[in-house]
């Protein structure tokens, strides 16, 4: 592959497992995806699907005893898996930055917001305090923080949730990272503030040239921000592809059922929601064969012996389901989510 076409982040067969039950319990199994320059990729799944573990493994932030990370994750061709801690530390914060769901725990409460962003800048670049602060104030202004010079002098608890999240994004962008990993960045926020932050994330591609790996459980957030989407179920990839295709023609029954179980805000109101029976399995109790099998409306004998392999469906779409290969793909979705009247 020519260097200029190389994806920014290329993850192949990433596996994360932890010791337990007298062996190793896989939390994440064979997850592969890539993030291109100035692209927003969504990583969706329910709690326990392994989406946050995937991100933490990429950042080298899992330090649970006995944890095993295997596979490959190349950032601009550099292998992240197994990279020495010191090298990873230079990369982290400068080239790859991460923002979390709860900005209150990401900031220390005992220093001002500005102090913490200055420190991050000065950890990676040789700058005077004054120059670092000037950059901090400018970043806060770019993130839409009103009165940025004064806000920089405030402590995290003095800011609203939306402002804290903006400050955290400012801190993450302080060294102009090329990749931003955002783990549920708007889950703790109200919808009107969430809309502002999503708008900000969408704009980063143009204003800062950053790519974003957006981790979320909210299919609405994915539809509004991500060009490509990866659906995880119980630590494995269920499906991936262009967001438009995934929403119009999901190839995995899990994706389809997940989309159908969201109550529509517009259009006709179903008498009952098409809910998925049961709950997602924990990594310890993952069933043999397809992990979604016990909850799947289409489950049959071929699903049970081994987890179905990820197979191409067409136009960049992949699905780990036996149905397309058996010649009985899922029908396109009848859109229950009507457009605005």
């Amino acid at each position: 592959m020519p260097a200029d076409r190389m994806p920014l982040l290329d993850v192949r067969d990433l596996c994360v497992s932890v010791p337990g039950n007298g062996g190793m319990i896989p939390l994440v199994e064979n997850v592969s995806f890539c993030v291109n320059e100035a692209e927003i990729v969504g990583l969706v799944g329910e709690s326990g699907s392994g989406k946050s573990v995937t991100a933490m493994a990429l950042m080298g932030l899992i330090d649970s005893p006995g944890v095993q990370v295997r596979g490959s994750a190349r950032f601009r061709g550099q292998e992240l898996v197994g990279m020495p801690a010191k090298a990873l530390r230079t990369l982290r914060g400068r080239d790859i930055a991460m923002i979390f769901q709860d900005p209150m725990t990401a900031f220390t409460p005992v220093y001002t917001i500005g102090w913490q962003i200055d420190e991050q800048i000065r950890a990676h670049e040789r700058l005077t305090r004054r120059a670092a602060r000037a950059r901090t104030v400018q970043l806060l202004a770019e993130m839409g923080v009103p009165d940025p010079a004064r806000t920089a002098q405030r402590y995290p608890h003095q800011l609203s949730g939306g402002l804290r999240q903006r400050a955290m994004i400012a801190m993450a962008l302080s060294c102009r990272p090329t990749l931003l990993i955002a783990d549920e960045p708007t889950t703790a926020l109200d919808v009107t503030v969430q809309a502002q932050i999503l708008d900000l994330l969408r704009g980063l591609r143009h204003s800062h040239g950053s790519s974003v790996l957006l981790i979320t459980h909210d299919m609405g957030v994915v539809a509004q921000t991500c060009s490509r989407t990866l659906v995880l179920y119980s630590g494995r990839m269920a499906e991936s592809g262009p967001t438009t295709t995934l929403f119009a023609r999901p190839a995995h029954p899990y994706t389809a059922a997940l989309l159908d179980s969201i109550p529509p805000l517009y259009g006709s109101r179903p008498h009952r929601l098409p809910a998925i029976a049961g709950v997602p399995p924990t990594p310890r109790e993952r069933p043999a064969g397809c992990a979604f099998g016990p909850r799947c409306a289409y489950v049959h004998a071929t699903c049970l012996p081994a987890p179905p392999a990820l197979a191409p469906i067409g136009a960049g779409q992949l699905a780990a389901c036996v149905l397309p290969a058996e010649g009985t793909p899922l029908p396109p979705r009848t859109i229950a989510q009507g457009m605005q009247p």
Binding site: V191, T192, Q194, A195, Q196, L198, D199, D218, M219, G220, V221, V222, A223, Q224, T225, T243, T244, F247, A248, L259, I262, L265, Y266, I335, Q337, M339, Q340
Partner: peptide, 16 residues
């Protein structure tokens, strides 16, 4: 308008 709808191409949110 701020609710992110699970529909690709839904009109963008009106920002408050």
């Amino acid at each position: 308008a701020a609710v992110p709808r699970p529909v690709v191409g839904a009109p963008p949110a009106m920002l408050l």
